[in-house]
């Protein structure tokens, strides 16, 4: 049972990551490639958060609601790391989009197979 849960949870996150990589590899539209990048990001964040989950755990916040009670808290470190990862992912997406805009201005297209200088 637990084995099944482990495989399904991590499998979902990895599936999301694979969808992102697939989009990045097969799509011709540059915007879609950037979207693939974000999907890959989300998949990886999902995987990290899932690694930090502890069965029956609550959010790692010592609010009055949990004061004096013996509660299990989930691992806060993956959450802090994912917070960083989300911000970095946002920065990467923003810069990638601005590069796409620059390419569009130069070549009047965002299809990578129509941009001659990207061929070799």
């Amino acid at each position: 049972m637990n084995q099944l849960l482990t495989y399904s949870v991590y499998g979902t996150a990895i599936l999301v990551m694979m969808i992102g990589i697939y989009a990045m590899l097969t799509k011709k539209n540059l915007i879609k490639i950037v979207i693939g990048m974000s999907i890959l990001d989300s998949g990886f964040n999902l995987l990290l958060i899932a690694l930090g989950y502890i069965k029956g755990g609550t959010a790692p916040i010592f609010s009055p609601a949990v004061e004096g009670k013996d509660v299990i808290m989930v691992d806060p470190i993956p959450q802090a790391l994912v917070l960083t990862a989300i911000v970095i992912g946002f920065g990467v997406t923003a810069v990638a989009l601005s590069l796409v805009i620059r390419l569009y201005r130069k070549h009047n297209t965002i299809k990578i197979d129509e941009i001659k200088t990207l061929r070799w």
Partner: peptide, 10 residues
């Protein structure tokens, strides 16, 4: 990742 069991306290 399957080596790290889901929901285990580590």
């Amino acid at each position: 990742f399957a080596g790290a069991e889901f929901g285990k306290d580590r």
